[in-house]
Every structure is written in structure tokens, then in C-alpha cells.
Simulated scan of single mutants.
Amino acid sequence: MLDTLGLAADAEALYRTMVTRPAWTIPEITAQLDMSDMRIRVALDRLAEMKLVHASWQDPHRLVPVSPSVGLRLLLASAESDVDRHREKLEQTRAAVAALVEAQDAARTREGVVRLEGLDALHGRITELAALARTEMSVLKPGGGNHPGGVDATRHLDEKILRRGLLLRSVFQESVRGHSASFGYVRSLARLGAQTRTVPAVPQMMFTFDDQVALVPLDPSDPSEGALEMRSPGAVATARALFEQVWVSATPIEQTSRRCGGRPIPLERVLLELLAEGHTDQTAARRLDCSLRTVRRMMAQIMAELNARSRFQAGLRVAENGWLTPVDEVFE
């Protein structure tokens, strides 16, 4: 209990006994506390050093305790003074840290664009910006849980943002619904207050903070390369416009896409668009972050819906039905 004042366990036990049993001699105290003579001598030296014992006026060879109302209160006052000095130093340190952060931000603002090379630099800067955010973090997250820019990349930051009461809006790739662990976590974020939606294909990884900063990948096809940090109003506004465009077309996480009036669901439409652009099943699967089997199953369902016996016939009927505008006949 008194260790905060500098009293170790032996010294405190000895002092307590001397105060509560003033008539006891040192040998009696030693026996009561079951301590060796050496430990008692060390404890007495510490009490003397802290001015908690002094020589008796009646017997100069005997040590007696200083009253706690005097000795301990003096120590407490000294400790409180130390705390005040430490608090003052902490305030000075806090001011120095704030000044350094402000200087760094000012330098970044002057430069307009900062390169963040590699995942370590990217995630470190995301952590800093999330801690400094005051109102909102908005995120586009391509790929599933194992993707460098995907669900798990900022899992711990998402929870911190929400605990601070900030708005968190995230758009995930539709394929996250097929990853049970990642989808469960995304739904738990929604229950904590995050606004989460999905789209068939997220155009690229992107983070925006308070309409002040935007992070975009150095290489959209490989977020592990790092990112560009942009602060110019025009660049940030462009990034925000992209996010809002994706956001309004996304499906809330609690809803599921359903075919309506014979029309394709968003994921099927994106698949058709990819095939119309000349992508193979394999490259389409990579773009949609799903398996080749899933792509072929979706195409089989589309062909069945269109009552088409070949992909070429399916392409014609997609055009006839106006599913894609414009449509290229690309189903080989």
C-alpha cells in the first residue's frame, strides 16, 4: 500500500509494527515478522533514510517510529509534488508532440502528394490518419479477407473509429458475402453502427478522412505496392466523388441481390460486362474475386434464364433484352 511512497514490503511491515506495537523491542518484532536480522537491518536503514524512525530521547541506542501524521504526510506531500512536476513535463511533451505532428502535416500539405511505399508505410499512415480523424472515415475495400486492401486490413481501426463515435462508411466487394469469417465480421461492424455496403466489383482500394485526405493505391491492381496520400482540395474532392458514386449503387449489407423482372442481379451484370469486354472466365473470376467454378455457375444460370443453348445465343438475347447498354457480342 505504501510502496508508492518508496516503502518496500519489509520496510512497510516493520514500520507498521513499530507504530502499532511501540513497546516491542527489535528482537520481538523480528520474531513476530519472521524476518532475518539482515532483512530487519536493511528495513531499518531504509526507514531511517526516509526519516520515519529516529533515536529515542530516553535511550539513544533504541530507534522509535516517527508518527505517521508527520512522517508519512511529509512523504505524501513530496510524492504529490513529484506528480505535479511529472504532469507538467507531460504537458510540455504533449505540446512538443502536437507541434511535431502539425509540422509534419504542414509539410505534407505543402507537398500535396506523398508516396507511401509498401504495406508497412500504408498501414502505418492509415493508423495515424484514423487517430486524427474527427468526423468520418470512408473506405473502398476490394477483394476478400486475404486481400491486402480487403476486410482484415483495417479490422482493428474500424472498431476504434466506431468506439470514438465517428462515422464509418465502407464498401466491400460482393464476394465478401461468400467468405463466412469476413462476412460475419462485416455484419458485426454494421451492428456496431458502421454503414456497410457491397458492390460486385470495387474499382480500387481507397480511404478518405474528413474530406481532408485521400489515400489511393500506387498500383490499383496491387495495393501491397503502397499508396499516394493526397491533400489538395481537387484531388480529395475527386476521390470523394468516386466513393459517393460507388456508394449510391451499392447494396446495404443486410440486403441480398435478387433478380427482378428477369433482369440480372448486379454481380451477373458485371460478369456480362467483363465478358463483353473480352475477358475470359479466368480473368473475370480474378476481377470478381471469386472462383472459376462460381463464374461458370453464374453463366449457366444466365443461359438458363435466357433459354440459350450456347454463349453466343446468350449474348444475342442479352442484347435483345437490353440487359447491357451498349452490348458487344462477345460470348464465344
Rank of each mutant, 00 (worst) to 15 (best):
M298T: 12
I302C: 11
L288N: 03
L306D: 15
E254Q: 04
T294L: 03
E254N: 02
A285W: 05
G261D: 05
P266E: 03
G261T: 02
H279R: 05
A276R: 04
A314E: 15
G278P: 03
M298W: 14
V295P: 05
L275N: 10
L274W: 02
T294G: 00
R259K: 13
R259M: 12
S310W: 10
C260N: 10
M298S: 09
E277C: 06
I253A: 00
F312N: 08
V295L: 08
M303E: 13
L274Q: 02
D281A: 02
H279Y: 08
L271E: 01
S291T: 05
T294D: 05
T280A: 14
Q282F: 07
P264D: 07
I265R: 13
R309G: 14
A285S: 06
L306R: 13
R240W: 09
R269H: 11
V248S: 07
V295S: 01
L274Y: 02
L274F: 00
R263H: 15
L306G: 15
R259C: 13
F243L: 11
L272H: 03
L288R: 04
M303D: 15
E254Y: 01
H279A: 10
M298Q: 10
G278V: 06
F243N: 05
T280K: 13
C290H: 02
L306Q: 11
R297W: 04
R293H: 13
A276G: 07
M298V: 07
A304R: 10
I253M: 06
P266F: 12
R287V: 00
R240G: 06
P266I: 09
G262M: 11
Q245C: 09
T294S: 04
A314M: 15
E254W: 06
A308Y: 15
R240V: 11
V248F: 09
G278C: 01
T251E: 06
N307C: 14
R311V: 07
T283M: 00
E305I: 12
I265T: 15
M298E: 08
R269F: 05
L267Y: 14
Q255L: 08
Q282R: 06
P252K: 03
V246D: 13
